[in-house]
């Protein structure tokens, strides 16, 4: 095997050595693929009310429903096939998590780098606001905002972004203000290069590693927050059940022993979150210079 040379290849070579992280990455990829191709592999479209039959509702795993196929994980109170509902639910969870994470990353990084680069009153104002927000638990912010904004995808993403951007801003600010004082940035600023070029070509790339680490953790957090909000009935509209809502739908039936309705969507959710967190842990360790051999 030839020695890897590019930074990405080196990174991958390191990553491969941790088997747990590799398995977690494979799991994330598998779930993402299953979610993307859900309409092709799911036996049923759970959002199409015409295919649902209340005759099939709350059936245990292995039941052969009116559709003529086996419900491997049973059905939910509306008669949805749970395998299909989970696949479509994962789709929503990942979409919301990635969208919220991406917007929060962009917003937070912009604010953080702007504060570090511009300095002065703006810096004090932005960072004071960010610090203030960090002192409130994100779940409370998301809860209140999604209650105020109402149900819907965009509203939910907005609530999650508002709850999470501060972490990105804090991280970007920390990295950028440390880089800002280094000689290479001073040198770049001393040349006739435009300020914008310095920020985008010099400052930002060097702030990327900590931001990538925060991003993985925050995507997992966004998915978990979304599930929590939907479970409380504050997230998405009822006709598009995300994993959290599937779990909430099954909750009343848990007492009577029909636990599969809540348990299987929950297992899918946990596997996704834990896998993302494990990948994130490994990425963080690899970016941490103190742990480098």
């Amino acid at each position: 095997m030839s020695a890897p040379s590019t930074p990405l290849a080196l990174f991958w070579a390191d990553f491969r050595e941790n088997r747990v992280a590799l398995a977690a990455l494979a799991m994330v990829a598998l779930i993402a693929l299953a979610a993307i191709f859900a309409p092709l592999i799911a036996p049923q479209n759970p959002y199409d009310l015409a295919t649902l039959s209340l005759m099939d509702a709350r059936r245990p795993p292995g039941f052969v429903g009116s559709g003529g196929y086996v419900h491997l994980l049973g059905t939910d109170p509306q008669g949805r096939d749970l395998v299909s509902a989970i696949l479509y639910g994962l789709r929503i969870s990942i979409q919301i998590g990635v969208a919220a994470g991406a917007v929060a990353l962009t917003l937070g990084a912009t604010l953080g780098v702007a504060a570090a680069y511009l300095g002065g009153r703006l810096e004090a104002l932005i960072m004071r606001a960010v610090d203030l927000q960090l002192s409130f638990p994100p779940i409370l912010l998301a809860l209140v905002l999604s209650a105020l904004l109402g149900q819907g995808r965009l509203q939910l993403i907005a609530a999650l972004v508002a709850a999470q951007y501060a972490y990105f801003a804090r991280t970007a600010y920390g990295a950028a203000s440390a880089e800002r004082r280094k000689d290479y940035v001073e040198a770049a600023l001393a040349t006739p290069l435009s300020g914008r070029r310095v920020v985008f070509r010099h400052l930002l790339p060097n702030c990327a590693p900590p931001l990538i680490v925060v991003a993985t953790v925050q995507i997992a957090n966004a998915i978990s927050l979304e599930a929590t909000l939907s479970f409380l009935g504050l997230g998405l509209p009822v006709n598009e059940p995300s994993l959290g809502m599937l779990i909430a739908n099954g909750f009343p039936y848990m007492m009577s022993g029909r636990s599969w309705i809540s348990v299987y969507p929950g297992v899918a959710l946990i596997v996704l979150i834990v896998a993302i967190n494990l990948v994130g842990d490994q990425v963080r360790d690899q970016f941490n210079p103190r742990l480098r051999r």
Binding site: T228, F231, M255, S259, G266, L269, I273
Partner: peptide, 28 residues
């Protein structure tokens, strides 16, 4: 690690399922 990753509401459901429904030791 699990305590950090797993959402609070899910842990609550599992606790109810285990200790209140299956074992019947504690009220839900």
């Amino acid at each position: 690690v699990l305590g950090f990753s797993v959402p609070t509401f899910w842990v609550g459901l599992i606790l109810i399922l285990t200790f209140a429904v299956s074992l019947g030791w504690l009220p839900a």
